[in-house]
């Protein structure tokens, strides 16, 4: 008799549980889809695949599952590989527009914004290709200058050499900077619900808290704490577990 009572009780509870879990709601179906997709993408990422589109898709899945911090992190990872990834950039802006408390976008002058857009447009590989084209143009310009007879006007080849040399140096510098950022991006994203900021690594007094999805710059780590700079310039210490770096430490060359 007791057996029957036990089985009956379990059956009732199991059915009530399944009613809770398997609610045929469209929202749940959508969540399940994104969960499955995320699992597939994470499996690919676990094999060491680094791809901007892969990180972008992981960001979309995380956002749809309500993980704003992870979404921001993966969009930043996509942009770290390809700063011209339009969809990742737009989705990051979309999140910032929805959550202006995360890291307010400064109102930049038009020319500064244009320069930054151009800088973003030239992703790492676009910069490399552009640099090669400029190297070839510079070489051709130098050939032209060197083989121009002395009795002929040399102003034009000199101009071509100067322009291509300046561009070559500028793009070369940009490539160096981007390469450095690609390997040593010190930014991190708050993935915990809320991250309390402390004055010192030993302190328990909370200076302030930052919400999930905030982007901070990591200066150094000490034990389980990391020293960070907030977007408004405030410095403090935060639990290392509550943030995740855009470029994992194993990938950086420090």
């Amino acid at each position: 008799m007791k057996h029957w009572i036990f089985i009956f009780g379990l059956l009732i509870l199991t059915f009530s549980l399944s009613a809770q879990v398997l609610n045929p709601d469209s929202l749940n179906a959508e969540q399940a889809f994104y969960q499955q997709t995320l699992q597939k993408l994470e499996a690919k990422a676990a094999h060491g695949v680094k791809n901007a589109d892969l990180f972008y898709d992981m960001g979309v899945c995380h956002y749809q599952l309500g993980n704003t911090g992870k979404a921001v992190l993966y969009f930043l990872r996509a942009l770290n590989l390809n700063s011209a990834h339009k969809q990742a950039k737009q989705n990051l802006l979309y999140i910032h527009n929805l959550h202006p408390e995360l890291s307010p976008e400064p109102n930049r002058p038009f020319l500064v914004q244009l320069f930054l857009n151009i800088y973003d447009f030239f992703s790492l590989n676009r910069l490399a290709i552009t640099l090669l084209i400029l190297a070839i143009l510079l070489t051709l310009s130098l050939h032209w200058l060197m083989h121009t007879p002395s009795e002929k006007e040399r102003g034009l080849p000199i101009l071509a050499v100067v322009i291509t040399a300046i561009l070559f140096i500028a793009f070369g510098s940009m490539l160096l900077v981007k390469n450095h950022r690609y390997r040593n991006d010190s930014r991190a994203v708050v993935i915990a619900n809320v991250a309390p900021i402390y004055h010192t690594p030993e302190s328990n007094n909370v200076l302030q808290t930052i919400p999930e999805g905030s982007v901070v710059v990591v200066i150094k780590t000490q034990g389980k704490k990391a020293q960070i700079i907030l977007p408004d310039g405030t410095q403090g210490w935060v639990d290392s577990n509550s943030i995740e770096r855009v470029v994992p430490v194993s990938n950086t060359k420090e």
């Binding site: 892969l54 979309v60 390809n82 590989n125 910069l127 640099l131």
Partner: peptide
């Protein structure tokens, strides 16, 4: 929000430089 790209193949990133 821009939608998923959901590509069949994600090639590994190669840094041309």
């Amino acid at each position: 929000l821009y939608p998923l790209l959901n590509l069949e193949y994600y090639p590994d990133f190669k840094n041309y430089s």
